[in-house]
Design a protein around this nucleic acid. Structure first.
Length: 901
RNA sequence: GGGGCCUUAGCUCAGCGGUCAGAGCGGCUGCUUUACACGCAGCGGGUCGGAGGUUCGAGUCCUCCAGGCCCCACCA
């Protein structure tokens, strides 16, 4: 089926050879299909599904590192892990029509395609009719959609492609329409003349969230407004300071602070607006900053948000002097017809002529811009559809407050509350063509607003005056209006489908903290509104991925394509490197070095796997029971039992870390175990040349079991390599579960550990390190055997004599046969080589000093009566044990030193 | 103006009240050991930004200070 034919060639590099993992993915889909999980059905008794919605990427976009981190790093990790835990797992993919962004992208493509098609450069028409343009949009959607979906597959995302959705699919359009109609009937949507952000380039309004601020330096002009009535001599001039003199023609008041002693006596008097000569009142309003300029503010309700609010409070007239193209309207009088920049210059000239421009000075201030095109905001008063947010926000605030929804990291909850508690109404209409239509018609004869019933066809007759001259609202809805419905609209809402019953509410929503307000908060509100329940119980927020200290952006030219990274290093390496060592919510610095570590680690795992497989081939009869059952038998060596115990420790640790959403720690711990303990220590001890006769098979059994565990443990982060190795491993023996694929096999449950063995073996490792250190210090040829004497409490290490000898190239002898009843970390190591006694003494003295320092600390702690009295018993016990060890260590170092003479 | 975060090894970061504070990268030294030179072994490197406080015990909790970053907001 289509899914398979589109499967990407996920590639990882191994010794210059391209390793094709697409076969693995094909395999997964085969299994999923035959398992029937894709088939919708009712909730099964007792099941608790794990449900996640993909944070839908923009359909016209390419994958960036933020996506790779979220989708491939965290979400797929969670999906695979929960699936392995036996939870029916739905991770639902899709893409967003991306309203204005997509429209801009396609307009550019169209302009490239055929310049003859249009003479106009301004959007959105391009010389096409609306229907023609939308047809072009759809044509391009078919071009873009497979692209982003293919990139998701490359990452290894185990998404349920049978449930993929696109926000502009016809059924999704219907759901958005119903949502709008219900909100309208409930009084959550209203239409009003308000001041909005207007983008002169994109020719549309946008919301506060889409507005950014940049610091800019402009001219601040001080302009005198002459008194309109005779004033006593000595009356001060009214001078206002403005950065936008061209809007003076739309002034309808001058405002001062009501408590400002300089001005309060003049409230109610009138001044003349320069150039337009209109009389306006001086009003008192607390929004005025007394410190700024002269303390007098020109009020232009038509072109400034603050002024609009002041105007609302004082019933001021709204004059619109600038039109949607940035040209001055007839209301601008002598400035009419000029664009806003020319009008500014012209206004300054006129003010100078009239002697009303007192002075100008530079001012550095914040200027609002549109986040998509960075055009300076032009606040305009327009009729728009608004969503009343406060009532919707209330239950969504409560849901986080009472723990129904948990946000990770926790501090993001404060940010959420801060925004939600001060939420403002949301302008939802946009003056573009690509997007969800607004299901509202206006009667051209009687101005009636006609909103059809749910699922009713488009109205053709005005219910009030029976006119047939109805026109649909030409605007479309903000993109986020539809994505806010994603968790329930994709499951079939408003129909009570089986999927909706089975998969709502979802489990986790994973996304970047930068869209907490845009998307997460709105999904919470709309989910509660439409479903009566929150859309998810956990919000996991990740941070920004930067390179060289900067956020990646196209304009900075520092965007690195994850696709290229995957082609070069493999998807596994990228996925792993992105999450390794990063705490929840923290921004991260991504570097080539990090990616290389990922690749080396994946390569290490691959090579461990190859080694194990080679051993299995060499000894085909070694496996007695199933691969995934803990090996046992008298032929198991201490080393075998040690790695088996350590494997269980890793299972415990890694399970805990994922359960606690500590994915960065999970990745680090995984590497620590696989590389340091398994590869560097155990694999060496499992090599046939290091095994006593008769214990070779035990090594193979152990290796097979440990690899099986390790592949499962690594699989959520490193799916391709682990899956490939598992398929090969499992061909060598039977398995207790029947899953033919790692993606569907079980996450390991921790088994029995041997704490004492781990402890003793840990000591043996320390001894090995110390012997190696001394050998290298002494510059002994690595091939030469040295004689090593172990004294002190070394008896505990007798079972590991061969191991120590084998790993260090030493002929190990034990000192006088004392049998230490308890394990004490004080072993004397004497490497018998010709050596520099002075250097040895210096080293030993340094060690002794350090050991004494530690000993003193322990003694001090024990001697402190309040410590024993107040610290928990376990801590006191631990400290006592540490004290004993330190005493022995000091003694043993002292002996060694004495022996040097 | 309001809110939030960060400051730990040369760099990037973990560390969520309890042994000597860790990892990766980088640095230095020695090794062509048939899983892996994309490797192995070893070494060096930290007054945990500063000052107080709480506690038997603080990198971890509290307060203040100094730097850096982010978000929200109607200083024209």
């Amino acid at each position: 089926m289509a899914i398979r034919s589109e499967a990407p060639r996920a590639v990882l590099e191994y010794r210059g050879k391209n390793f094709d993992a697409s076969a693995v993915e094909t395999f997964l889909y085969d299994w999923w299909e035959s398992s029937g999980f894709f088939t919708p059905g009712p909730k099964r008794p007792g099941e608790t599904p794990f449900v996640m919605m993909l944070p839908l990427p923009n359909v016209t976009g390419d994958l960036h590192l933020g996506h790779a981190l979220g989708f491939g790093g965290y979400e797929d990790l969670m999906a695979r892990w929960h699936r392995m835990r036996g939870e029916p797992t739905l991770w639902l993919p899709g893409s967003d029509h991306a309203g204005i962004i997509a429209q801009i992208v396609v307009e550019k493509e169209l302009a490239k395609e055929g310049a003859g098609r249009t003479n106009m450069t301004t959007s959105p028409t391009l010389g096409l009719s609306r229907d023609e343009f939308l047809a072009e949009m759809w044509r391009w959607m078919e071009h873009y959609k497979p692209r982003i979906y293919k990139q998701l597959r490359m990452l290894g995302c185990s998404l349920d492609w049978t449930r993929v959705h696109f926000t502009m699919d016809p059924d999704m359009q219907r759901r958005v329409r119903i949502h709008f109609i219900r909100l309208y009937r409930n009084g959550h949507l209203y239409r009003a003349d308000r001041i909005v952000h207007w983008c002169l380039t994109c020719q549309t309004t946008y919301s506060d969230l889409e507005s950014l601020h940049v610091v800019r330096t402009d001219q601040l002009s001080y302009v005198r407004y002459p008194w309109a009535q005779a004033m006593p001599s000595g009356t001060p001039d009214v001078i206002v300071a403005t950065t936008r003199p061209e809007t003076i023609v739309a002034d309808t008041a001058v405002a001062v602070h009501p408590d400002d002693p300089r001005w309060k006596g003049f409230i109610g008097k009138e001044v003349l607006v320069p150039v337009s000569e209109r009389k306006v009142k001086i009003i008192g309003d607390e929004a005025v900053d007394r410190e700024f300029g002269t303390g007098a503010l020109k009020v232009t309700p038509g072109h400034d948000a603050t002024d609009f609010d002041i105007g609302q409070r004082h019933g001021l007239q709204v004059l619109s002097a600038i039109d949607t193209r940035g040209f001055m309207t007839p209301a601008a009088g002598p400035l009419a017809g000029l664009d806003r920049d020319a009008a500014r210059a012209a206004m300054i000239e006129r003010l100078k002529e009239k002697g009303l421009l007192m002075r100008q000075e530079p001012i550095t201030h914040n200027v609002g811009i549109h986040d998509r095109c960075e055009t300076v905001d032009e606040p305009l008063v327009m009729k728009q559809w608004w969503m009343k947010m406060k009532p919707l926000a209330k239950p969504a605030i409560a849901a986080v407050r009472d723990g129904t929804v948990r946000i990770i990291p926790k501090y993001q909850e404060k940010i959420y509350f801060e925004w939600m508690e001060n939420i403002r109404d949301w302008p939802v209409s946009r003056q573009i063509w690509w997007g969800h239509s607004i299901p509202v018609w206006y009667c051209q004869d009687c101005n009636e607003i006609v909103v059809p019933d749910e699922d009713a066809p488009d109205p053709t007759t005005c219910p009030k005056c029976r006119s047939h001259d109805l026109r649909q609202d030409p605007d479309v809805l903000d993109t986020w209006f539809s994505s806010a419905l994603w968790p329930h609209s994709t499951l079939g809402w408003p129909e009570q489908t089986e999927d909706l019953a089975r998969f709502y509410p979802g489990s986790v929503l994973e996304t970047g903290y930068d869209i907490l307000f845009f998307w997460v908060a709105r999904m919470l509100m709309m989910g509660i509104q439409n479903m009566g329940d929150v859309p998810f119980g956990v919000v996991y927020l990740h941070g920004l991925v930067r390179t060289e200290g900067l956020k990646m952006s196209k304009s900075k030219g520092n965007v690195v394509s994850p696709v290229e990274m995957m082609e070069e290093h493999g998807a596994d390496a990228l996925r792993y490197a992105l999450v390794n060592g990063i705490a929840a919510g923290a921004d991260s610095e991504f570097s080539e070095g990090k990616l290389e570590n990922g690749r080396r680690f994946v390569n290490k795992l691959w090579n461990v796997g190859r080694f194990v497989l080679a051993q299995l081939e060499a000894r085909p009869a070694a496996l007695a029971g199933p691969i995934d059952v803990v090996p046992s038998g008298a032929d198991l060596t201490e080393a075998d039992r040690w790695i088996l115990s350590r494997t269980e420790a890793a299972v415990e640790e890694l399970t805990r870390l994922i359960e606690q959403y500590q994915f960065g720690e999970y990745a680090t711990a995984l590497q620590q175990f696989i590389w340091t303990e398994l590869a560097d220590f155990y694999v060496e001890l499992a090599k046939p040349q290091r095994r006593a006769a008769g214990s070779e098979d035990a090594a193979v059994r152990t290796l097979a079991y440990v690899l099986d565990r390790v592949l499962r443990l690594a699989h959520p982060s490193i799916p391709f390599v682990t899956e490939t190795l598992a398929l090969q491993l499992w061909q060598h023996g039977s398995k207790s579960d029947r899953a033919p694929s790692l993606v569907l096999s079980a996450w390991p449950k921790p088994g029995t550990r041997d704490a004492e063995l781990e402890d003793r073996f840990g000591l043996a490792i320390e001894v090995v390190r110390r012997i190696r250190e001394r050998r290298q210090e002494a510059g002994i040829d690595p091939r030469m055997t040295v004689r090593v004497a172990l004294g002190g409490d070394a008896a505990a290490l007798r079972p590991f004599a061969d191991i120590i000898a084998s790993l260090t190239g030493a002929d190990v002898r034990f000192g006088p046969g004392d049998s230490a009843p308890t394990l004490v970390r004080a072993v004397e190591v004497r490497v018998e080589v010709p050596r520099d006694a002075t250097a040895d003494r210096a080293r030993l003295e340094k060690e002794l000093a350090a050991a004494r320092g530690l000993l003193e600390r322990s003694r001090g702690l024990i001697a402190d009566p309040s410590f024993s009295a107040r610290a928990p018993a376990a801590v006191v016990e631990k400290t006592k044990a540490a004290l004993a060890e330190r005493e022995a260590a000091v003694a043993s170092l002292q002996t060694e030193l004495d022996r040097l003479g």
